[in-house]
Amino acid sequence: MAVNDPIERRSFLQAVGLIGLAVATEGLTGAARPLPAAVRVTRPGPDDPPIPNEIVQKIFTERFQNRPIQRGHVTLDVAAMAEDGRYVPVIVESDLPMTADTYVKAVYLVVDHNPDPLLTVFHMTPALGPVAIQTRIKMKRTSWIRAIAETNSGELWADYVKVETTLNGCG
């Protein structure tokens, strides 16, 4: 019995240590990090992600002249956890009409924390069907992705998804 004691004690301590570690990391990653309040420039809705940096602000100024962006009519479909930042599949869909008079003239994809946040712009015409774009993008790190549809009358509709990623796909 006395011979076994140290081993039991060690394995017990190891087990306790593992549980402790698990609780500690849970506490660290689970804690909500406050978003910087100073960078709110345009008027996001209550659940919209704030403008994270000047580059994204510049994109919104140059491309949209800071017109308000409303949430709705656009669905951005991305897995909340991207395993490989080099290939992140995204689907952007919209129920906005595609007729000769009213149509979506462009779809923008913005990844807040990429080196080049304005990732792509799809310029469209009414010859296309309803917006249902699929592609694969790169992500540098955990970031909000913004899918913004611009109608020919200048309205801006958007959807946002925060995607966690660990493997840097941008360098």
């Binding site: 080099r86 290939y87 992140v88 595609m98 994809l109 990844v111 990429n114 080196p115 080049d116 304005l118 990732l119 792509t120 712009v121 799809f122 310029h123 469209m124 015409t125 010859a127 296309l128 069907g129 309803p130 917006v131 249902a132 774009i133 699929q134 592609t135 694969r136 993008i137 790169k138 796909g169 941008c170």
Partner: peptide
């Protein structure tokens, strides 16, 4: 002869780009 779409791409598009969309 009609141009129906134009895409602006950056390095943020994955290697061997793949895109799909709907056409009438």
């Amino acid at each position: 002869d009609e141009q129906v779409a134009q895409f602006e791409w950056t390095t943020g598009i994955s290697k061997d780009p793949l895109v799909s969309f709907q056409l009438r």
